[in-house]
Simulated scan of single mutants.
Amino acid sequence: MNRSSLDFLKPMFVSHFSDYSILVINQTTQNNLLQSDYPSVRVINSFEKGLSKSRNMALQNAKGELCVIADDDIQYKDDFQEKILRVFNENPDTAIAGFRVVNPEGTLFKKYPKARLINPDTLQLLSIMSVEMVLNKTVIHDEIKFDERFGLGAQFTMGEEGVFIFGLLNRGFKIIMEPEVLLQHPKEHTNLKISVSEKYYVQGAFIYKIFHKNYFMWLFVKIFFDLKQGKIKFGDIKTAWRAAAKGKKDLNRI
């Protein structure tokens, strides 16, 4: 958002960023436009807000057949292109491949499958982050878009990756998880916390969007795991349940 220079691209790649085909969606104002002097780097200055809106604009205008969603705080490994090509040459009918990410210290960002998985189970699919995704536009074309009601800047501020992935899965597209490290990502900021009611307001909409008929079962599962991991307390259950119900109701109303 509000970039005035392409300098933020420099630390993202081992070689100069102009060696790559890049599309920047810069959400900004009309008096703060970003420009590119490199033929390989295209810029779209957008005057709308919302993470999912930005990603839909990127997918709609991307020229490449294989697309990565690149946050501006990551650093790609020097062989990331070769890894992507190898996976999709072996699996050309794959819509999305989810790769591994490491912390700056070189340790895995989270727990990943030890071997390649084709159409992983529900919990594994829900764990895929946008920076781990490589999208195959020759398979998905423009059929599936990010739901603009979800993601930063939208009414429901999280969950856009899961909604997108399950939209593909429910339409029969192939999704794989690949045990190859693609990039480095900084550790999550533990101080960025939201209240139980805010979190479960989004979760209620998210769970209903994805699981619909099994809404109550998956909401119970979510609450159970959050209790088990110490993310909420027993005294928070009533607040969480009511907030989820409001999120579900508001999604229906929209």
Rank of each mutant, 00 (worst) to 15 (best):
D142G: 11
L168Y: 06
E161G: 02
D147G: 12
K77I: 01
G162A: 15
Q75M: 07
N252Q: 10
A245C: 09
K193R: 13
A58V: 02
R3Q: 13
M57A: 04
A205D: 04
Q81R: 15
G204I: 08
F8A: 08
P104L: 14
H16A: 12
L108W: 09
I84N: 01
L33T: 01
V134Y: 10
I44M: 13
M177K: 07
L9V: 01
K248P: 07
T190L: 12
L135R: 09
N61P: 02
T239N: 13
P120G: 01
D142S: 15
H185W: 12
W241G: 02
I69E: 00
D147W: 06
F17T: 11
P179H: 09
P179I: 10
R116E: 13
K187P: 11
L108M: 11
G247N: 07
M133D: 03
N103Y: 14
N170V: 00
K213R: 12
I128L: 14
F225Y: 12
I140D: 00
L125V: 00
N26P: 07
P11D: 05
N170C: 00
L135A: 07
P179Y: 07
E180H: 03
H141G: 13
M12T: 14
N119G: 05
D78K: 14
G153F: 00
S18W: 00
K49E: 06
L85R: 11
K110S: 13
R149P: 05
G98K: 10
S40A: 11
Y208H: 06
V134G: 04
T239I: 14
E188H: 12
W241T: 09
S4L: 09
T190H: 12
D73I: 07
L6E: 06
E188S: 15
S46Q: 14
I22A: 05
S195L: 05
I237H: 03
F99P: 05
S46E: 11
E143G: 12
D79V: 06
P179T: 07
F47K: 13
K248A: 01
R171S: 07
I207T: 15
L227F: 03
S21M: 02
L168H: 04
P120K: 04
L219D: 12
K110A: 13
T190Q: 11
G247Y: 02
I22H: 03
A240E: 03
N31F: 02
N45G: 09
N136A: 12
A115R: 06
L66G: 10
Q81G: 10
Q75F: 08
T138G: 00
V139Y: 01
V196E: 04
K199V: 01
P11Y: 09
F164G: 00
H16E: 15
Q75R: 15
K193I: 15
L117I: 11
T107I: 01
K111Y: 07
E178G: 02
A154M: 02
E148N: 11
D72R: 02
S195A: 13
Y20N: 03
R116I: 14
R116H: 01
A97H: 04
V131E: 11
N61M: 05
K83G: 09
L251E: 02
M133E: 12
L135Y: 01
